[in-house]
């Protein structure tokens, strides 16, 4: 199945879907550990929600919930059909901090976000607000840096013969 449909909002919605599918690829093949610029080490895993984009306007999206949807035969079949992820629940970790969030790849909107637990030393609401604001910003920064890392590969002239080829083999496996 050749997937070139741009069913997503905007002209670059497909790129968000490719990013999310790439995260899955990197998680399964490299363990999902990313070292971003500045030496920050971030771990990413896919959790209990996957939505595959409809290959065309006439076809349906496919959503898999609960348990380990990445391990299901349905998910593997979707990948073999060349389908991209439109939405996924992610677990993102940096040091002792962990976020969970569902990323809608076509809009880059995050829903159902859970921030890390408040730091122990936060005693007042003012402290909690400052701590949470820093964690919201860090989540944005992590997503931005991961996306930047993806784009560095994706926009490189030799992508289709290198990283793209490897991902294609993984999807077909």
């Amino acid at each position: 199945m050749n997937t070139r449909a741009r069913s997503s909002a905007g002209t670059h919605g497909f790129l968000g879907e490719e990013f999310l599918t790439w995260l899955w690829f990197r998680w399964e093949t490299d363990g999902g550990e990313f070292t971003t610029t500045g030496g920050r080490v971030v771990g990413v895993a896919l959790d209990d929600l996957l939505t595959f984009a409809a290959p065309s306007d006439d076809e349906t999206e496919q959503t898999l919930r609960h348990g380990l949807p990445t391990r299901t035969a349905e998910a593997r079949t979707a990948l073999r059909q060349g389908r991209r992820l439109r939405k996924a629940r992610l677990i993102i970790a940096e040091g002792a901090r962990q976020w969970t969030a569902t990323l809608d790849a076509t809009t880059m909107v995050l829903t159902g976000v859970r921030l890390p637990e408040d730091a122990e030393e936060t005693e007042s609401d003012q402290d909690r607000t400052a701590d949470r604001a820093a964690n919201w910003l860090l989540l944005h920064e992590i997503v931005r840096l991961l996306y930047g890392q993806f784009l560095q590969q994706r926009l490189a002239p030799g992508y289709l013969g290198a990283g793209g080829e490897q991902q294609a083999q993984w999807m077909a496996s």
Binding site: N2, T3, E18, G82, G164, Q167, A168, A172
Partner: peptide, 14 residues
């Protein structure tokens, strides 16, 4: 967009 292959056979094409 990349057109990922439908791997009905073993051929892998990007």
């Amino acid at each position: 967009a990349v057109r990922w292959p439908d791997s009905q056979g073993n051929r892998v094409t990007v």
